[in-house]
Design a protein around this nucleic acid. Structure first.
Lengths: 233, 233
DNA sequence: CGAACACTTGAACCTAATCAATGAGTGTGG
DNA sequence: CCACACTCATTGATTAGGTTCAAGTGTTCG
């Protein structure tokens, strides 16, 4: 296993407090799984057999409605954990689908191994709870946004969040460093690709950002914050 | 402490798997707190010092936006746990406000006592995780509803959920056994009290329910399910 | 009895969804 | 290397669903 990978696991939000011994064991027990773009780590409803820590790439957690409509719950970046429910209730299905947004690889542990690890390293259970708690806050926040904010604000927020997680500083501003279609942004902000397209175009006209195919570069983060906080218009 | 109370704690989703000894200790360590209608158990942002199990009454978990708009996250019924975050991260504030929807009483444990109990009874930590997980599912479900469903469907879903939790079988149908204003329903379904009023009136005209001041009686639950699932119109 | 609160209903307005048509960029195979 | 196909994106026109505002009715309670 290469150094890069080990380092990511060591600093992951699941194992960050584990002892070196536990970490070594974790690395030995885990298996590395690669999934190419648009492939799935697991689908909503599958028995929750494994927990994953993303090593490379980007993974979308999505839900699909009976009518086929998709909503994107979150986008995972390397070092983040998903499918952690496997520790808790393997018999239950995963509550969402994990789809690779680009070629991705993740370390996976099955329920039994995970429990072995958690047995000797309490921080793993604790971290899992922290993750769940953080996720709850995020969902509450999102719910508040969906109910009380206009689409424009929600799109601004999503862009700022993506910039914070996957942003890359450039001369002209902050580039969101991943392939990102208008449809993706729409699914994250709870709107349609048309509205996203119009909104981004308008913002480009105002000089807030530069847009391209599957690319967004934020030139004026401060301006976006003002929109997100509804200080304009 | 009266028998009623003990029974509720024993069957609560926090202590349901605890040994009789632990339960007894829990009852000894906990303090009973009463809050009258519209009062608060805690406010969003307060340091999370206590976890509660509701004994009598109804408690709303609400969030308030900077503009003063309220959204209701959930309504707790006796036996349910709230403020469980106290076990995990007391230094953090509560993520939402707990307000009594009617005169209510709840058993409370501070962080230290909670940890003592959790130390000797692992099921408590496990149950906390289950609670968090269940809540995550609920929030995801709600988010999906907010993004993909029309207001009518969401109102129908809320009524059905309330009926399931607080419903009381009557001759003419199922009565939602709590004071419930149009505003309350609006805050839960992410709409306005006007839309709720119009919608309920229309449903009464169709004979699906009977409405009164702070009262809803569902005469045709099946009909509501059909609306919630978008099988009509 | 009066005040506060809950609720209803009409009318105007507006945001964002939907539909439709077209354009631009990317990748692939002959 | 170019042509074709495909995916992604833009933009205009229309419409629907729901919000907002305003006015007024009914109900409860001190």
């Amino acid at each position: 296993m290469d150094k890069e990978t080990i380092e990511i696991i060591r600093r992951s939000n699941l194992f960050q407090d584990a002892s070196p011994a536990t970490l070594e064991q974790a690395l030995a027990l885990g298996i590395l799984r690669s999934v190419e773009e648009d492939g799935f780590f697991f689908m909503q409803g599958d028995p929750a057999t494994h927990a994953y820590v993303l090593v490379t790439g980007r993974v979308k957690m999505v839900q699909i409605t009976p009518t086929g409509q998709q909503i994107t719950l979150r986008i995972m970046t390397p070092g983040q954990t998903y499918g952690g429910i496997a520790l808790l209730k393997p018999q239950d299905g995963y509550p969402a689908t994990a789809q690779a947004a680009e070629n991705s690889s993740a370390m996976a542990w099955d329920t039994a191994k995970l429990r072995t690890l958690a047995g000797k390293e309490p921080s793993i259970s604790l971290n899992t709870m922290q993750l769940m708690h953080g996720y709850i806050l995020e969902l509450q926040e999102r719910q508040k946004a969906l109910v009380t904010e206009r689409v424009e604000q929600r799109i601004a927020r999503i862009l700022l969040k993506l910039a914070a997680e996957s942003g890359k500083k450039m001369d002209e501003g902050v580039l969101i460093d991943m392939r990102l279609t208008r449809q993706d942004v729409a699914e994250m902000s709870g709107t349609t690709l048309y509205t996203v397209s119009r909104t981004l175009s308008e913002w480009e006209r105002q000089g807030l950002l530069k847009i391209g195919r599957e690319r967004v570069l934020i030139r004026d983060p401060h301006g976006l914050v003002r929109i997100a906080d509804d200080l304009v218009k």
